[in-house]
Design a protein around this nucleic acid. Sequence first.
DNA 1: TTTAATCTTGACTAATAGTCACGAGCTATG
DNA 2: CATAGCTCGTGACTATTAGTCAAGATTAAA
Lengths: 263, 263
Amino acid sequence: MSIASRKEREFKDREQLILKTSFKMLLDEGYIGFTIDKLAKKIDYAKGTVYKHFSCKEDILMKILLDSSEQRMSIIDRAVDLDLPERSRLIVSFSGARIYNKLNPNLHKMLLIARVESIWNKVSREIKLTHDEMLQRSYLRFDQLIATALASGSLVLNGHCSADIFLTLLSINIGYSSLLRGGGSDNLQGKFHDSFIDSIVISDADRALSMSLNTYLDGLNWRPLSSEYDYFALEEEAAKTVYSDLTAMLAKGEFFEYVSNNL
Amino acid sequence: MSIASRKEREFKDREQLILKTSFKMLLDEGYIGFTIDKLAKKIDYAKGTVYKHFSCKEDILMKILLDSSEQRMSIIDRAVDLDLPERSRLIVSFSGARIYNKLNPNLHKMLLIARVESIWNKVSREIKLTHDEMLQRSYLRFDQLIATALASGSLVLNGHCSADIFLTLLSINIGYSSLLRGGGSDNLQGKFHDSFIDSIVISDADRALSMSLNTYLDGLNWRPLSSEYDYFALEEEAAKTVYSDLTAMLAKGEFFEYVSNNL
DNA sequence: TTTAATCTTGACTAATAGTCACGAGCTATG
DNA sequence: CATAGCTCGTGACTATTAGTCAAGATTAAA
């Protein structure tokens, strides 16, 4: 092993350490509690060293967000090749995303942070582009599914277009996770157990979200309709098969480790 | 006029000044650009004086958010007494909310800020409760509409409950406005005109959102279905009648002034 | 006019983001 | 092995921030 590559490896190892520690800090203390000073102290490096890796704290956040999203996408992708109708594959992929969200409650909170415009604007151009590229990739995959559905005749678009449908499904998911703040924490103090929203989402938020998605797809008249096919049974089946590993983690009360992408 | 009440009035006037100036600062510079030091300099009072009114900057933000939400609710309420089927009234109220959002692009951005948990946690208990109470009020109104629809038979719930429907409609609205960052600004530099999301929401995001809501309501089988009733025509009609004043403002390129609630 | 109460102030502390000149220690070469 | 040169980690530094509070200014009451 050459000297250059050893140094390079050391650099990447340190980047890993920065990201892993930041991930933990964000989980424990939220966006406001996450500071570069504290981070530097925790990893036992000087502040300047951290800035050799990332140009601002928002970039660290976005890098983690990016990697987590990538990880989630790979889980969603498990549904792609299943021998099922298009709509069923879509439902299975969403249920995968939902399981993932429970295993990494950090992700949707970071997504919300990223949506605050003045925070997003601090992110470096490079990471913004990567972020955008990833979103685009996930849309293209979705678009392909829609195309297959149109070809098979299970879906007929009346005035809708695949981008609108994509946006709506994304909205429902983002909206739900933004409304239901519970589960995991962005900040340890002052949880919301007394809030009204929490009180009306008594029963099963998971099932409610799934129903909402299905109701929307029914409205699109995407066959088979939920009256013709038991999508809940499908999700339960998927939890036991395609996502058996994740279901096991959930049962054990485990969470996802953060893993950076460029190792 | 007694001396006490004159002092009281002066205090409230200053509170107005603080809120109006903060509103403008938030519009121009976003959450991160909004600082108490700058605010104090702008209104020509010492920093300590500002803290006599609000315990932290998040409280100022939330007070503005609260007042704006109240203002929006009064607009949504215009649809309540219309002589129309329940679903139509719902659609009209949503279109009112959408028009309002355009006239006060600050509102949905502040909503997103409030959803960042570590920011929300800095808000005083009192304002949190007011916030919650308002949400509850808007839900109760929605619940009433649902009850009427159930009584009239235009809607039949199969496994859904009104809270789920409320959450979903809210989610779609929040999700959409969070995805479409354009329009107004949270921070003047570095807009997103080059982002992928912007590029797929080429045509008319407004119409897309309206279609999504209707598709979901169709999925619920809420009569009349969008195939039986022209909801777009209804919205256009509403823009010209119930919301004629707002439509005129939009046409003139005006925005909503901020008005505090406790005058 | 004097006293008492109230309100406003800005200097102060503590924390924060981000920079950069310095020098420790590593590398290459004779 | 010595030394020159260079890389890269460092933490003191600047500038900005939130939030506090003793002291002084202003006003009211006697």
